[in-house]
Structures are given as structure tokens and as C-alpha cells.
Design a binder for these strands. Structure first.
Lengths: 222, 222
DNA sequence: CCCCCAAGTTAATGAGCGTTAACTCCAGCA
DNA sequence: TGCTGGAGTTAACGCTCATTAACTTGGGGG
């Protein structure tokens, strides 16, 4: 193996992680097909095909990023849900924990959240299935928690409603990094401090779920 | 000019519109850079460079689509807001009208809604500025209406909150076509009839705005 | 001290793709 | 009837780009 310890601190990250970070940034900015390998190489200080010492190919980089974020989302989601499952009064608290976790991802890993529902189609069939399975597991986790937290959505007829509501809330939470992107001023998100933005997103998600519960079972069109 | 009337009804659409429709479908499915002009040509029954009789280039097709949807959104939004502006009790009704209009776009023009916030970066600078100006106008329209409908968001300090909330609700409404895509069964949206899905999205958006108003001015982190 | 391998380098290859050129075809009109 | 121009066709050009090949280098363990 290579050097075992003592990273020089000028390059605090191992090459592979450095490539991940820059590739995610570039893919999010210009799209997977819009970025060339030479560009990724230049971003990490090596040039062009040197990347092939660390990844099998450009596709493999994207797959690594999407599988990684999907696994982290599901893992963290399970961790937060697993703390206290099954009891009744805590269900709202579990839902809040899920929301908080997702908001943190959306605000702190903007590039990956953007990629994870934007570039899925550029994966090879096998990787795409893998990512979709992870995403589906994450969605099911949310659906279960939502149906426990909001009894109006617990009935079997309301299952599609709960599922669609979770989809929609994901869209709500994920869209913010995308639309409010490039203002880099320390901790400022479109004029709001990071924590205020997090609290706002949390409230919006809560409010959306509450409205879904309130309107469940009503046939009325708009 | 060419033939003036009497479209043969086998090709109900003029060539240009037919190209628009197929290009939108393909771009939404595989991304702008992932679709070749030969493919678009084949989808409309002509092949490859024949498209250049109708569009100046591939870029021009995307620009046409994005400018078109942005203009339609803004125009229809203004139409619905213009019916009764300025009065106080009707503000909530105007907001509902805006939401309904956007939901209709999201459900009926899925491909265009998907493209309009996914492929903006592949436009040439000039077209991108044009589309962004239209999108900004549409957003400002919503922000004004939201601040009239919900007094808690009307203060000058709450302007960034209202703006962020509108962004988030756009994400909510736009995400549904994207995540619940390819189930084509007549009028079924992930197990829900179209009108139920529309009503649900409407409720989710209302609930999100209400929650934003409810939590405005509170400093609390999650 | 020497060898070896991880990590890079540049050059070449080969495929894909947007666009242009040159040519064909036919409908409509004077 | 003869011509004109919109609409399409195929072939060719030029460029980009992912991947591979062949070669260089430097540091650590036997």
C-alpha cells in the first residue's frame, strides 16, 4: 500500500476524495455530459487521463457520487428513525428528525443533492438500479414515518397520497440549493443566515405534510 | 408563404410544433447533450440535418422551448393576478389562482417544466439572460401576491423569507412531474387521478405558505 | 543500493456529433 | 409549360472527447 498516515495538510484530502469533490462541483455546475475529464483533472492539479489511476472511468465517478449520497441519506435516515420507532407520540418527533437530517444534507451537500436527482439517467443500467433501490428505500422510510405521524394519512386509500406528498416535499427541500445557488458569502443563503434557512425549510415541509393530512379524503378539485 | 389552411389532420401539427414536442420529450428524457439531432429528426419522420430548415440549430431548439414556457408561465400568471389586484380580501384568492395555474402547467406540460429548470445552463449567454429575466418576473409576481395574501410576510425583513418560500414551493410543484414520471395510464398519476393530484399539490403549496407565515419572525433553529 | 510500483505524463486512437455543402424533388403559379 | 423555392436527402468536414498505450519518475522496503 501507499503511505499510511501523516497527510501533509496542504492536501488534506486523499486524491480520491479530492476528485470526488471537484467532480461533484463541476457536474453540478455544467452537467455530467458538459464536463470533460481534462477539466476534472485540471481542477485537482493533475491532467487528463491521470484520473484513470483512481477511477475506472468518467461513468464510475458519477456512479460513486450518486451511490454515495444515496447510501448516506438512507443510512442517516434509518439512524434517525431507528432511535424510537413504533411508539405513537414520538412519531412527529421522528418525522422532525428526518426533516432536519434532509435539510442538513440539502444545505451542506448542495452539489450532491443536485446531482442525485438530475444525473441519474446518465448511469449505466446496473448502477442506476442500485441508486434507485436506495432512493426507494429512503422514500419508503419517510412514507412509513409520515403515516405514523399523521393518522389521516394512515389508511390504505391514503397511501398514494402520502407517497406523493413525500415526493413533493423532497422536491421542496432539494430545490433550494439548486435555485438559490451561487451566493457564497459566509453562511448567507439568499439573504438569510443558514440556520434561518434551515428553520424555514423545516417549517415549509411540516406545513406541507399537515396540509396533506388536512385535505386527505376530500374529493374537491381546485 | 406555404399552404395557408387545411392541415391534413394526419399531421395535425405544423412541422415546427411537431419538432418542438418531440425535442422536449427527448431532452426531458435524456438531457440536452444526450440527444443527437439525428434522433430528433427520426422522431418527427425526417432525418438529421433536415431540421435546419426549421431551426437555426440545436441550441435554437432548446432556446425556443425554454423561452416559450417561461413566457407562457409569466403571461398566464399575470393574467390570473391581474383579474383583481390591490384589494385585500381577494389576495388569498389570487394566490390560489396562481397555484392552480402552475399546477396545471406542471401536470400538463411535464416535459417543459422539467427542462425549464434543468437545462438552463446549456443556453448561450444571451438566451439564458432572456429566460432568467422572465423567470425572475414570474417569481416577483408570486412574491408580491404571497406578501399581500399573508400579512406576516409583508414586512421588509420578511422579504427574503417570502422569496425563499416561493422558490421552495416552485420546487415542490415542479418536482412531481419529474419524480412521478413515466406512468402513462390514462389520467393516473402514481395511483391518483389527475384532479386528486392537482388538489393535493394545491394543498401542499398552501400549507407550505401558511407555515412560512406562521414561523416568520421566530429565531429558533431546528 | 537497487528495484518496483504507485502515480503521472504526453501522444494516439477512434467514435460521436453538430453543422455545412451539394444535390433532388415536387407543388403551385404565371 | 416551365420555373421557382420550400423541404429533404446523403456525404463530408471538423471538432470534441473518453479511453488506451507507451513512457517517465520518485520514494520506500528488501
Amino acid at each position: 500500500m501507499g503511505s499510511m498516515s501523516n497527510v501533509p495538510a496542504t492536501a488534506a484530502l486523499p486524491r480520491r476524495d479530492q476528485i470526488r469533490k471537484e467532480a461533484a462541483r463541476l457536474f453540478a455546475a455544467r452537467g455530467f455530459l458538459g464536463v470533460g475529464v481534462d477539466e476534472i483533472g485540471k481542477a485537482v492539479g493533475i491532467s487528463g487521463p491521470g484520473l484513470y489511476r483512481h477511477f475506472a472511468g468518467k461513468d464510475a465517478m458519477l456512479a460513486d457520487l450518486l451511490v454515495g449520497i444515496s447510501e448516506r441519506l438512507l443510512e442517516e435516515g434509518r439512524r434517525r428513525a431507528g432511535d424510537r420507532t413504533g411508539d405513537d407520540a414520538g412519531a412527529q418527533g421522528v418525522l422532525d428528525a428526518l426533516i432536519s437530517g434532509h435539510v442538513d444534507f440539502a444545505l451542506d451537500d448542495r452539489d450532491l443533492i443536485t446531482l442525485h436527482d438530475r444525473e441519474l439517467l446518465h448511469l449505466k443500467e446496473e448502477d442506476r438500479r442500485r441508486v434507485r433501490r436506495l432512493q426507494r428505500g429512503y422514500l419508503e422510510l419517510w412514507v412509513e414515518v409520515v403515516r405514523q405521524a399523521l393518522p389521516a394519512l394512515a389508511g390504505p386509500d391514503e397511501e398514494p397520497v402520502a407517497r406523493a406528498a413525500v415526493h413533493a416535499v423532497f422536491g421542496l427541500l432539494n430545490s433550494t440549493p439548486h435555485s438559490l445557488g451561487p451566493n457564497v458569502a459566509q453562511g448567507e443563503w439568499a439573504g438569510l443566515p443558514r440556520d434561518s434557512m434551515a428553520a424555514l425549510l423545516h417549517s415549509l415541509a411540516q406545513g406541507a405534510f399537515a396540509a396533506a393530512a388536512r385535505s386527505a379524503g376530500k374529493p374537491g378539485a381546485a
